[in-house]
Write a protein that binds this DNA or RNA. Structure first.
Lengths: 342, 342
DNA sequence: CTGAAAGCGCTAACAT
DNA sequence: ATGTTAGCGCTTTCAG
């Protein structure tokens, strides 16, 4: 452990220090076995002394293996991706793989996403997990039969690559059923554009569909992105018979709750509100949001398993793997006013 | 863009396809200039057709440059790190560097952190940013004079490496002063152990100190980690003259708020509460937390600048760079009951 | 059990 | 302006 002169020590330096050949060092460092213990010790000591860390570039080049998985994350700021990334990292490590991620800031643009993809391919990661709907099929087409791809967190509706994602159908329906069972008969559903998020759009459509089947009047509130719900809330408030608001995410719900608060509308006394996601700070019992928890842990872990499976398993069919989440009873849904007898 | 047989195309394949030498391909791919336009086009076309992406390993090996910064993140699940990572990613890209991060799950253990560090060094990143107090000085000592290191998000109190972090002194004092100015005279400060987080401990100590100087009675509530504030809240409630609770983070504040809610204690009518962090969902006006916003954007960006500075600038002194945040007026601090005349 | 030697895919002189 | 050649640091035969 002494200060080496700026240059990073190479296998050669270690070999010299230990008085063996570089092949020996290589074997020891990779724990190949079949080496006399004495040499092992000598090499390890020398490596430690020099602070030697084998170059992943050199070894990767020579061995054509990197034992690394790459991840493209849409937006590091969103807790959703943080949780997903965490889950994947954990699973990858368990399975003996390293994981590197390149993430976007704000919203990773399509260009950024493409660049991230190229960077990861340049690193010769052995498998790729994409957590961003920003990447279109064309973007990974060139690499698709070269390296295993999996999408995590969003369904790939084009069925080009396998995907693992929250069962939006289940989530949307569970929430809708719950709202219905409480007796609400006119409901506003906040819906994001499909282009903004397939998942959020999907859960919204599931809500709308079931509510309709249950004979409930649905007012669809089309959102631009995820912000600016103020005017939409005003609009809903013009319809006094609407007693429940269903949001596409907890974050949107938070905004809605804020707008309601500013207008002195109490939740759940005056209106009921539901969210979607159920993780991170917004899942705190302090807020008591009625929501649906996405199984991020499982999504991440299965995504990793899926890439690894194709990695050593040959080619499997493209799979779409919805994972059911968990309904969270909160304190934001109650009987509608008119049933409440007030 | 046709399906290549599993093997990734090399510079050689492209050269053959374009009918030029590999040096030509190398030059074109790196945009070296001084090449006849016709050849440029031919090479680019061939590369596109084959889906060629230069191997970062091979080029890194040959050029001894990776144009990559490495980041060790403590816990991807915490929004704090997500935001920091986002800011760094952005700045790195602006400055023409790639950034790869290896993040922990839950709490990155010391061992994991060491491994992450080694992995990044193995990749021969040109600079390293550590966002985890879990790494002790010994861990990076071997590499410290080999590659630029910077800590982001926490001060390196050992003064071994440069660090960029939130000015906890300022934050703690601003909040304490605010609470004092409202007329509170007996205050509880929730304090995490120094080993858990230097930053959170630091801001807590700053609060305690200033409150003391202002003649306020301070009750220090020692926390184990960041959880389990229930019993602590009970304890504080035994002291009816304590009218304000100061928390080391918005997350802790959220827990405290929840415990208070369960006990039917209203904020800010019954007691005032302050937090710390001011980003992400918890910064929503819906919650209206009175807090101090950490300048994560600036911390991340300056951390990147700092590494890059040492990268091409030779050796500078070790710097500790506190960055001031912003006080956030919320709705969780009000006049103490006894002043309120109730 | 160990060393020598031939690459891995690319860059960087060096020629031409 | 373009081709040739010698490595970069490591793994992997292949001999011994």
């Amino acid at each position: 452990m002494e200060a080496a002169e700026s240059r990073q020590p190479t296998i050669f330096d270690v070999a010299a220090e230990a008085g063996v050949s570089k092949s020996m060092v290589s074997r020891v460092m990779r724990g190949e076995g079949g080496v006399r213990q004495e040499k092992v010790d000598r090499v390890l000591a020398a490596a430690e002394k020099l602070g030697y860390v084998p170059s992943a570039m050199a070894s990767g080049l020579a061995s054509k293996r990197t034992k690394t998985l790459g991840v493209v994350v849409r937006n590091a700021k969103l807790p959703f991706y943080g949780f997903l990334q965490g889950a994947m990292q954990k699973r990858a490590r368990e399975r003996g793989y390293q994981m590197v991620s390149i993430s976007g800031v704000e919203e990773l643009s399509a260009d950024d996403a493409r660049q991230a993809l190229r960077d990861l391919i340049a690193l010769r990661v052995e498998g790729l997990i994409v957590c961003s709907a920003m990447l279109a099929v064309e973007d990974f087409m060139p690499f698709i039969d070269r390296i295993p791809f999996v999408m995590a967190g969003h369904e790939d509706t084009t069925r080009t690559v396998s995907s693992v994602f929250c069962d939006e159908e289940d989530g949307g329906r569970r929430l809708a059923q719950y709202v219905h069972d409480f007796g609400h008969r006119e409901v506003a559903v906040f819906l994001v554009p499909r282009e903004y998020s397939v998942s959020q759009y999907g859960r919204g459509m599931a809500m709308i569909e079931l509510l309709g089947q249950l004979g409930i009047r649905v007012k669809v509130m089309d959102m631009k992105g995820a912000e600016e719900v103020g005017t939409l809330v005003d609009e809903v408030l013009c319809h006094p018979r609407i007693t429940a608001y269903m949001c596409p995410s907890d974050v949107v719900m938070l905004n809605v709750m804020d707008e309601l608060r500013r207008r002195d509308v109490s939740v759940p006394q005056d209106v009921s509100v539901t969210g979607y996601d159920g993780f991170g700070p917004l899942a705190s019992p302090y807020l008591g949001f009625t929501t649906y928890r996405q199984p991020l842990e499982e999504i991440g872990s299965r995504a990793v398993d899926l890439v690894l499976e194709r990695l050593d398993g040959g080619d499997h069919a493209v799979e779409a793997l919805p994972v059911k989440g968990e309904f969270i009873h909160g304190r934001t849904v109650a009987l509608p006013r008119w049933k409440d007898g007030r």
